[in-house]
Amino acid sequence: MNVPRYWRSERTRYGLVGEICRSCGKPIFPPRDVCPHCTDEGQDVHPFGGKGQVYSFSTVYDAPAGYTEYQPYTVALIKLDEGPLVTAQLTDVDNEAVHIGMPVEMVTRKIKEEGENGLIIYGYKFRPVLESKSSRPDRF
């Protein structure tokens, strides 16, 4: 069981919780011991807003073990509004509709399951920003 490993990063994964460097004030994700911008060590916990844009992406048709159930899926680099680049799966999207600059938002989803008897791993993914007003429905 990899329970402690997953448990340790739960907060980061469930809610996109990173840090702000106390020295240079820059946002950091994922959390690190040393600031990648100024190399200082003091950071404060900072939940990110969850909005960003697709910076680059690739669709996976031959997924690694543990993820085959979800293939094909698109993995993207997301440029968060606060600055950091995050690697994450996209969800609730047609793979052919993904494009650079696409506005996306964070959702918490199932990442994988450790087999039928094992832990269910949840974490952040990104989906196209939900329009708050009704749009024309697709046809079947």
Binding site: L130, S134, R139
Partner: peptide, 16 residues
């Protein structure tokens, strides 16, 4: 009311 997506916004987001 408008501080979060409406129920109808979720219903309209529809992929058959």
């Amino acid at each position: 009311q408008r501080l979060a997506p409406t129920t109808q916004a979720y219903i309209a987001r529809r992929k058959p």
